[in-house]
């Protein structure tokens, strides 16, 4: 008797909490999507508190196609995957690249964007002089050119300080190629990194192209330019995708189907051009 009572109390609490957040199991009526809300132009918050950006437009589009209702909630990049695993949300969309380490823990949809990585530095710095203006390099199609480009980066960044966001593919790049050559500083947010770049605490910032471009358009960034190779592939992987729990394979399938349709009618490209000014479709 007592245990029955407990069970019903626990179940009641469970159902109540589930209703409160809309996180349903199995029957996907509502899907909760987690993003930073401070990672322009992927996702950012406007002054009315609404999250807008490339990933918001894309998410709304995909959800409509998949026939589910989507709810977007904000959470720091720090703890994004633990948040997914703890059930805080069902999908991560936060400019998250597919990597082998992450694939051990969660599943990914097909990539919806594959922008190159880009370095930024002060216009009149010697890094900018050594590396020259940005030019695309594809490590998947032309590994030799990519090797040469990375060697040039290593030579130019000797003794410099490089800033990346913590636990990103850019941080992986820095620890693979720049750890012994330059000082690598890891920041909680890209915004903090940009501030330190403008303040002169670091010489170079590394991030994905759309994020770098957005920084260059911000106030006080007149002195910054994109320098060196804009690398596709290598540690940056095949692109950014939705992160989904391994137990929710049906949801992954649903969104993959929606993504196929959105690629086919040019919607993804449209959002990309609108928010990134370049076509980043993989």
């Amino acid at each position: 008797m007592g245990s029955r009572l407990w069970k019903s109390v626990a179940l009641g609490a469970a159902v109540g909490a589930a209703l409160a957040t809309g996180a349903y199991a199995k029957e996907w009526k509502t899907v909760v999507i987690g993003m930073e809300g401070g990672y322009p132009p992927w996702n950012q918050t406007d002054s009315s508190g609404k999250i807008v950006g490339f990933e918001v437009d894309l998410a709304n589009d995909l959800c409509k196609r998949a026939g589910v209702e989507c709810k977007i909630i904000a959470q720091d990049w720090d703890g994004m995957i633990p948040g997914l695993k703890a059930g805080k949300f069902d999908v991560i969309m936060d400019g998250m690249s597919i990597t082998d380490e992450r694939k051990k823990e969660i599943d990914f949809s097909k990539p919806y964007a594959a922008p190159p990585a880009a370095f930024m530095a002060a216009k009149d710095s010697d890094v900018a002089k050594k590396l020259g203006a940005g030019k695309p390099v594809n490590a998947i199609k032309d590994p030799k050119a990519a090797d040469a480009a990375i060697k040039a980066v290593q030579a130019a960044l000797k003794g410099k300080t490089v800033g990346v966001q913590v636990s990103t593919t850019h941080a992986n790049f820095a620890s693979k190629y720049l750890k012994d050559i330059a000082t690598v500083k890891e920041y909680k947010t890209t915004d903090d990194r940009d501030l330190d770049l403008k303040n002169g605490r670091i010489d170079v910032g590394l991030d994905d192209y759309p994020t770098v471009a957005a920084t260059l358009e911000s106030p006080d960034a007149k002195d910054l330019v994109i320098v060196g190779p804009e690398i596709i592939g290598d540690v940056f992987g095949v692109g950014e995708a939705m992160g989904i729990r391994k137990s929710d394979a049906d949801l992954t399938a649903k969104f993959n189907k929606a993504l196929d349709a959105a690629f086919a009618d040019g919607s993804v490209k449209k959002y990309s051009l609108q928010w990134f000014k370049i076509d980043t479709t993989p």
Partner: peptide, 15 residues
């Protein structure tokens, strides 16, 4: 806790 009583799925706690 919910799994123990047979409810299968994730429960989010609002922030």
């Amino acid at each position: 806790g919910a799994k123990l009583v047979g409810y299968d799925g994730f429960i989010g706690v609002p922030s």
